[in-house]
Nucleic acid binder design. Structure first.
Lengths: 252, 252
DNA sequence: CGGAGGTTTGAGGCCCGTCAACCTTTGTGG
DNA sequence: CCACAAAGGTTGACGGGCCTCAAACCTCCG
């Protein structure tokens, strides 16, 4: 009940005024399609850090897009271990995990306070079959999500922790750039533990990996603030592990 | 040019006579929708082992479904390492990796000789927006593919090789059962090396893992022939790693 | 028979997971 | 203002699991 005025402003603003319009579902659809889409989108009040959009087992009722903030989707294995299935930045669809059997297979948790648009799925599918461009764009957005999953697979299939970490930072920077934020310095929305559960590593290994990258002059680390100092070297570490960092030779 | 007669028979048979009908795109659509779908599906002559359906960088022109046989999708990293993005059994859509930017991001390679249906994507999208059930089923099939990717992520995030291997066999057996084949004994369509590249392990580790499972009486291994002897124990190894196999206690 | 591809097994070394201690920051309450 | 606790992060020591390298075996096929 803190800021009703802000809420009203948010409610008034539709997709047409949203800065993410070209990355999100409205991209490439006409004016009348936009109005139809707009009419079903529910703009929620701010979500607090730690709150969930849905939980494992919930019916697929809607998909979600953050306008700001960040989310993680997690699954808890039977032995109680948390695995991070994905991180979700603004403009990236959340909830597609339930497309297969109409039940969510993970929890979606806010990493920061965040504003999200909620799109009732049945109505979205209805409109998609009427508006020519929307079905196409829906498939594209789903496809980008599939692409991020494959990037994730690619990270996890690497055997060296340093490669996974370099690839993680590289991919995250690219996603920040994609939504118009700096890819040279940013604040990580997630903890070291979240990153570890995302990369299949121990959190200490993640911390050591960051420290090592800083020692090598590739990045600068200050808690969750990251600055990328040497993008070329970061790329090489991510993609060409055999080419050891020349800077390191002196100390070997 | 080996078996033109068989080809003609295959061409004559449409989705309506296909044993995979209920798992594939036609599930839940009406007769007239089925005819529309049928009219765009191209049934290819058999694909030989090692042949590709598409390669990285190719435009998205069609999606594919195997009627029999098996495929792998792979990506070659810049340092020349092959990673297996996914294995594809009959009824599972191949080619969704290109949904994001209309370019394939991996190669699809036949693991065995196989028969596939080729579905031109633009036409599929067209018909999907006309036939009410087809769009829904397309999203379901895409969703199941996303679900398999998440199962894959779940395997790769496990730190113990034995867990990944148990989970791999468990999941594969489930998929065989789903398409009406035995889940108690089956022939692996892929090599140890393929499995290693799928699980992010060295191939020797995969081989040792199989041997160990056999020593423990969980499975029987004969090259690529696998028989699951103790399903309960396999599940426990896959999901409850802390509960060490009681059979092993005697030798420890 | 010989060669290639696939699989298994052995030996050794290193990376990373585990356990632990310590530090900083944040928030709570006396 | 300080005491205290909790959460997040860093660093160190140590041991084990897995990767690497290597060799042997098998089946298949020309």
């Amino acid at each position: 009940m803190a800021t009703p005025v802000l809420d009203l402003q948010t409610l008034r603003k539709g997709c047409a005024h949203c800065s993410l319009q070209q990355l999100c579902l409205p991209a490439g659809i006409g004016v009348e399609g936009l109005q139809q889409l707009d009419s079903i989108v529910r703009r929620r009040r701010p979500i607090a850090r730690g709150e969930t959009l849905f939980r494992t087992g919930d019916d697929l009722s809607a998909v979600y897009v953050a306008r700001d903030g960040a989310f993680k989707t997690i699954s808890i294995s039977e032995d109680g271990e948390e695995r991070v299935v994905g991180f979700h930045l603004p403009g990236e669809l959340i909830g597609l995990d339930a497309l297969g059997d109409e039940r969510h297979r993970c929890d979606a948790v806010a990493l920061t306070t965040a504003n999200v648009c909620e799109v009732p799925f049945d109505q979205l599918a209805d409109i998609a079959s009427q508006v020519p461009g929307l079905q196409h764009q829906l498939l594209r957005v789903i496809g980008r999500s599939v692409g991020r999953d494959q990037d994730h697979l690619d990270m996890l299939a690497r055997r060296q922790a340093s490669e996974r970490i370099a690839l993680f930072l590289h991919g995250l920077a690219e996603r920040f750039r994609h939504i118009g934020q700096s890819d040279a310095q940013f604040k990580l929305p997630m903890s070291r533990e979240d990153i570890a559960h995302f990369l299949g590593l121990a959190l200490e290994t993640v911390s050591r990996g960051f420290t090592r990258l800083q020692e090598d002059g590739v990045i600068e680390v200050d808690g969750r603030r990251i600055a990328i100092l040497d993008r070329v070297e970061l790329d090489r570490l991510a993609h060409h592990p055999e080419a050891a960092d020349a800077r390191r030779r002196v100390s070997n």
